[in-house]
Amino acid sequence: MEVQGKRILITGGSSGIGLETARALAGKGAKVFIVGRRGKVVAQAVAALRGAGGQAEGTDADVTTPEGRTRALVGARTWLGGLDILINNAGGVRAGRLEDTPEADIRQMVEVNLLSPILLARAALPDLRAAGDGMIVNVASGIALVGVPFYTTYAAVKAGISHFGEALRRELKGEGVHVLTIYPAATDTPMMTSSHAGPDLGFVREPASAVAQAIVEGIETAAFQVIRGGETRLAMIAQNRSDPAALDARFLGLKPKLAEAVKDHSAL
Rank of each mutant, 00 (worst) to 15 (best):
K6V: 08
R7G: 00
I10L: 03
G13F: 15
S15H: 13
G16R: 12
T21L: 12
A26F: 03
G27P: 04
G27D: 05
F33Y: 12
I34S: 00
R37T: 08
R38S: 11
G39Y: 05
K40S: 13
V41G: 05
A47Y: 04
A48W: 05
L49V: 05
G51I: 12
G53Y: 01
G54V: 08
Q55S: 15
A56G: 03
A56C: 07
T59E: 13
D60Y: 11
A61S: 12
V63E: 01
V63A: 07
G68D: 12
R69Q: 13
R69V: 10
R71D: 10
A72S: 10
A76D: 01
R77E: 11
W79F: 04
W79N: 05
W79H: 06
W79I: 00
L83E: 01
D84P: 05
A90L: 09
R94S: 14
A95N: 15
R97S: 15
E99W: 04
E99A: 03
D100C: 00
P102T: 02
E103T: 13
D105W: 05
I106V: 15
I106R: 09
R107A: 13
Q108W: 14
M109P: 10
N113R: 08
L114K: 02
L114Q: 03
L115I: 15
S116Q: 03
S116E: 06
P117A: 00
I118Q: 05
I118P: 02
L119Y: 02
R122W: 10
A123D: 10
A123V: 00
D127P: 00
D127L: 07
R129M: 02
A130N: 11
A130V: 02
A131D: 01
D133P: 07
G134Y: 08
M135P: 02
I136E: 01
I136S: 02
V137N: 00
N138R: 07
V139E: 03
G142W: 02
G142Y: 04
G142S: 07
V146M: 09
V146F: 04
V148Q: 01
P149V: 10
P149G: 09
T152D: 06
T152E: 11
A156E: 11
V157A: 09
V157G: 06
K158E: 13
A159Y: 07
G160A: 10
F164M: 07
E166M: 13
R170F: 09
K173E: 15
K173P: 03
T181P: 08
Y183R: 12
P184D: 13
T187G: 08
D188M: 04
D188N: 13
T189G: 10
M192H: 09
M192F: 14
M192P: 06
T193K: 14
A197P: 12
D200Y: 10
L201I: 13
R205S: 09
P207E: 12
S209W: 05
V211C: 10
A212R: 00
A212E: 04
I215A: 05
G218T: 09
E220F: 02
T221F: 03
A223Y: 02
F224V: 14
Q225D: 15
V226I: 14
I227C: 07
R228E: 15
G230R: 12
A235F: 01
A238K: 05
Q239D: 09
S242C: 08
S242K: 11
D243E: 06
P244W: 03
A245P: 02
D248A: 14
R250A: 15
K257E: 15
L258N: 03
E260L: 11
V262R: 08
K263P: 08
D264K: 14
D264S: 14
D264R: 14
H265C: 12
H265R: 07
A267R: 08
L268H: 08
